[in-house]
């Protein structure tokens, strides 16, 4: 299980997505794309768009806090 969250410093939905993962005890890589341009580019390539948050759950990309999709991919 490998989970990465791409977010920016000021994005409330990013906070919500990360809080949700924490509430379910899921560990994740927390990448701030507003501080890391290389990571920003990686996120844009993986997701085909510029919005945050973007979640990479075992290679599956979720754009935004799409709880049903996240639950499905995490087997919750």
């Amino acid at each position: 299980m490998s989970v990465t969250v791409y977010s920016t410093t000021t994005c409330p939905w990013c906070v919500k997505a990360k809080d949700y993962l924490k509430s379910k005890g899921i560990e994740f890589n927390d990448i701030n794309v507003s501080l890391d341009p290389r990571a920003a580019q990686e996120m844009i390539e993986k997701s085909g768009q510029r919005g945050v948050p973007v979640l990479d759950i075992n290679g599956n990309i979720v754009v935004g806090f799409d709880k049903p999709q996240i639950d499905k991919l995490l087997g919750l």
């Binding site: 920016t8 768009q49 919005g51």
Partner: peptide
């Protein structure tokens, strides 16, 4: 929507 049409400057202005 989200690609040039927005309703929240705090959310999306920085882009």
């Amino acid at each position: 929507s989200g690609r040039g049409v927005h309703y929240c400057a705090v959310c999306d202005g920085a882009v």
